[in-house]
């Protein structure tokens, strides 16, 4: 039996790209949510949290419509690049970012709230510009939050199934990620391959989580 590892690499690539984008997008969003006094921030918070509770097929269905050539996102993407978003890797990335957003935003928001404005003000009064203060003081102080956010975003993206199936289908090398591949092996009763892939995913995820929790235990948050 020859084990096709293409879905594994594709999954890792998808999770990595998604996590990087998520960290960049979520930092200002979480910062705003942690510090804003605006009442309607609750609306934003609720929207961000939706993927936590929504059946992935519902999210996938609406994404399919939005990313399709008649959808808002799909049409503008097509006009810009000439390519379609549905059943492509780019489409998967967009879907994954939305799907895993709460898993990155919430740990960051909690970390920012816990650190508060006090260290920031201290840094400003020591000639540090807002950006300088953010990277030299806030980021180190919220390191645990960032690690948790990155790991949750990465592993959650690796495990997604419903949304991927709706938006990406199962094109080998393009959109056929690990969870889809496992499903298809089971469907054709190829339990051996399904076993290898499933056990691999299980082990990998466990080890990653173990490392994170071990790290957080060894390096407790500063000053708490």
């Amino acid at each position: 039996m020859e084990l096709d590892l293409t879905p594994v690499w594709l999954t890792l690539k998808l999770a990595a790209v998604t996590t990087v984008i998520l960290l960049i997008v979520s930092t200002p969003l979480s910062w705003w949510l942690a510090h804003t006094q605006k009442r309607w921030s609750a609306v934003v918070e609720a929207i961000v949290a939706l993927p936590l509770v929504l059946p992935p097929t519902v999210l996938g269905f609406y994404l399919l419509l939005a990313l399709g050539s008649n959808g808002v996102l799909g049409a503008s993407w097509q006009a810009l690049t000439g390519a379609s978003l549905v059943f492509t890797f780019s489409g998967l990335v967009i879907a994954s970012v939305l799907y895993s957003l709460p898993f990155v935003v919430q740990p960051l928001q909690n970390a920012f709230t816990a650190v508060g404005r006090a260290p920031l003000e201290a840094a400003w009064c020591l000639r540090a510009s807002p950006l300088d203060a953010f990277f030299r003081v806030i980021v180190p102080l919220t390191r645990r939050g960032y690690i948790t956010a990155a790991v949750l975003g990465f592993t959650h993206t690796m495990g997604e199934f419903g949304v991927v199936l709706m938006v990406g289908g199962s094109i080998p090398g393009e959109t056929q990620v690990l969870s889809i591949a496992i499903y298809e092996h089971v469907e054709v009763l190829d339990y051996t391959t399904a076993h290898y892939l499933s056990a691999g995913l299980l082990l990998f995820t466990f080890v990653v989580l173990l490392m994170v929790y071990g790290f957080n235990r060894r390096f407790p948050a500063h000053g708490h």
Binding site: A118, P119, E121, A122, A123, W124, C125, L126, R127, A128, S129, P130, D132, A133, V137, P140, L141, H222, G223
Partner: peptide, 20 residues
């Protein structure tokens, strides 16, 4: 003028040292 361009020192009620 934002605080970081004011060349002032601020000692807060709590020391607010950077723990890292």
């Amino acid at each position: 003028v934002p605080p970081h361009r004011r060349s002032l020192g601020y000692v807060f009620q709590e020391p607010r040292l950077f723990p890292h």
